[in-house]
Design a binder for these strands. Structure first.
Length: 517
RNA sequence: GGCCAGUUCGUCUAACGGUUAGGACUCAAGAUUUUCAUUCUUGCAAUAGGGGUUCGAUUCCCCUACUGGCUACCA
């Protein structure tokens, strides 16, 4: 076990918006770091220039920021990636494209040690190997059998190699996987894993043309240089773990090799496979923390724009693949940090459930103070062109909040406070508007006019006294009043609504209903 | 196809050899209520299959099935 300070990193590629699985990986890294008083580093792995997407890096930073899982190292206060070393960011730059100069020597070291080699296969040649294998019903694996037959630095003189490198651009550096070696690995979540090296292929470490290493080389070199102690990443990386172990061994870095934890994947709510961008559109829920518009103008919705609280979002993704072992389900980021432990991470993939996501937000909405909700409500009302006071907004919020999961639902739940009903729910009318009802409403009007102070308790008291005296049915009267005032069978207690509306508006609505029904 | 990992209610999960297999979401029923909702109560619903090991397997081992990932000069 490491005795030095815990250092973890989240190392996304800027190939598009980070999806919720990526955020979860970042979150677990963050939680692990905080739990152990360690450092959470953000590093941008942009070694594939063809897949680079402008704006993706900024999106990643903004998304993490929205979630409150901000990196300790790698990102400047301005929100940009640190490019110059300083006390806070000692290993800058943190963008791999800016670290180009570093990787070359390590690739060359492996070649000169005999752990890697120059391979001169053209793309066309590789393609034909694949085709041949396919005809035999196999998948082409670039292994020791292949490297013995192809043109590479293993089977030519140094002079020939030098000549080839000079003359062509079609060369890569491949890792030379031992022919027959049992690779023993350990994962913090899965325990011991072993694999025969003979089943592995000679992965490309250095690409032709763009002068950049592949993920594998850059990742190992940077993790070592940046003194990363724990690599927490998605399960899709598990098949690369043997290569990464071999790389650490080849460099003689086995002492510095971090501990690995491969997180279970997030799966589609239905059907097969891991959660993808498309599922959101198809099933009607966001897969991204923030809204994203692609260069082609295609828009993907975000949790933020859908009205989720970042706390709720973080809470719900934290419980996908991890649980505290208690029955607690609602956790602040601080509580998560306290409760998190890697040995309670689940091994199997977690199917995402959008309904439970809603429920989480509902919990957070309920726990918000009326004052805070009223602020948001006011903004929403403003967009509808409705002016009201903070006091009134707060009062209405307190009456409707337990019916909502999102703030944007407030309007549907409260419009009748601001706009009198123009049409009356037909089913409800049929049920509550009887021949004798107009008479009752007229009487109710008089009663309400005479009600000394127009507040909830006095309205209720007055109404009930009258109902009792006249031997009316409570339900009959209340439903009729609700029909007149709200127009539909929904909402809080009718006295509460009258209280908010005020005497004048209440009576006006009764008159209106009398004329229209 | 090959390699690796996984498999408890529909979903998220608890139980790290001994429980009537627990909780949450969803759904259903009931109670409360002037409507809707809330709240409360109850209910439906699971150890993939087959072999072992053991006094006893959800739990340990093996096989099969299924699921997922990977199999690029992508990460």
């Amino acid at each position: 076990m490491q005795t030095e300070k815990v250092r973890v990193r989240f190392a996304p590629s800027p190939t598009g918006p980070l999806h919720m699985g990526g955020v979860r990986t970042a979150l677990f890294n963050y939680l692990f770091a905080k739990k152990h008083n360690g450092t959470f580093v953000l590093r941008i792995e942009d070694t594939d220039m063809r897949r680079f997407v402008p704006g993706a890096e900024q999106y990643i930073i903004e998304a993490l920021n929205w979630c409150g899982i901000t990196p300790d190292e790698g990102v400047l206060p301005s929100g940009s990636i640190a490019t110059e070393p300083c006390s806070r960011h000692p290993f800058a730059p943190y963008r791999q494209s800016e670290r180009k100069a570093i990787y070359g020597q390590y690739a060359k070291q492996l070649v000169s040690q005999g752990d890697a080699y120059y391979a001169f296969d053209t793309p066309a040649e590789l393609e034909s190997y694949r085709l041949e294998a396919e005809i035999r019903g196999e998948t082409f694996t670039y292994n020791h059998l292949v490297r013995n037959k192809t043109a590479n630095s293993l089977n030519m003189t140094a002079a020939e190699v030098a000549r080839r490198i000079k003359e062509t651009n079609d060369w890569v550096i491949r890792f030379k996987v031992p022919e027959d070696q049992m690779i023993l690995m350990n994962d913090m979540i899965r325990g011991n894993i072993s694999v025969q090296s003979g089943t592995l292929d000679d992965k490309v470490l250095w690409k032709a043309h763009d002068g950049l290493p592949t993920y594998h080389l850059a990742n190992i070199v940077d993790d070592c240089l940046m003194q990363i102690t724990h690599v927490i990443r998605g399960e899709e990386w598990l098949p690369s773990l043997p290569l990464h172990y071999m790389l650490y061994n080849a460099f003689g870095w086995q002492e510095k090799r971090p501990l690995f934890a491969h997180l279970p994947l997030l799966l589609k709510p239905d059907g097969k496979g891991k959660l993808s961008k498309r599922d959101g559109d198809r099933l009607g829920f966001p897969v991204f923390p923030l809204e994203w518009t692609s260069s082609s103008g295609e828009r993907s919705r975000g949790y933020r724009e859908d009205g989720y609280y970042p706390e709720a979002f973080v809470n719900l993704i934290a419980l996908l693949g991890w649980n505290p072992g208690t029955e607690q389900e609602i956790f602040s980021l601080e509580e998560l940090t306290e409760a998190f432990s890697m040995d309670r991470v689940i091994k199997s993939g977690a199917r995402f459930n959008p309904e439970k996501a809603r429920w989480f937000n509902q919990q957070y909405l309920r726990n918000r103070s009326d004052a805070r909700l009223a602020q948001d409500f006011l903004v929403l009302l403003q967009k509808k062109g409705i002016a009201t006071t903070l006091q009134k907004a707060e009062k209405i919020v307190s009456l409707i909040k337990q019916r909502a999961s999102f703030v944007h639902e407030f309007w549907d739940l409260s419009h009748y406070f601001f706009i009198p009903p123009t049409n009356y729910d037909p089913v409800y009318s049929k049920k509550s508007w009887k021949p004798e009802t107009p008479g009752i409403i007229r009487q109710a009007k008089e009663i309400l006019e005479g009600c000394t102070s127009f507040n909830v308790t006095s309205i209720e008291k007055t109404l009930h006294l009258w109902i009792e005296k006249e031997q009316l049915k409570t339900g009959q009267v209340m439903n009729a009043l609700r029909l007149c005032i709200v127009g539909e069978p929904q909402g809080p207690g009718i006295a509460e609504i009258m209280d908010v509306l005020g005497r004048e508006e209440t009576l006006a609505r009764l008159d209106r209903a009398l004329n229209n029904l």
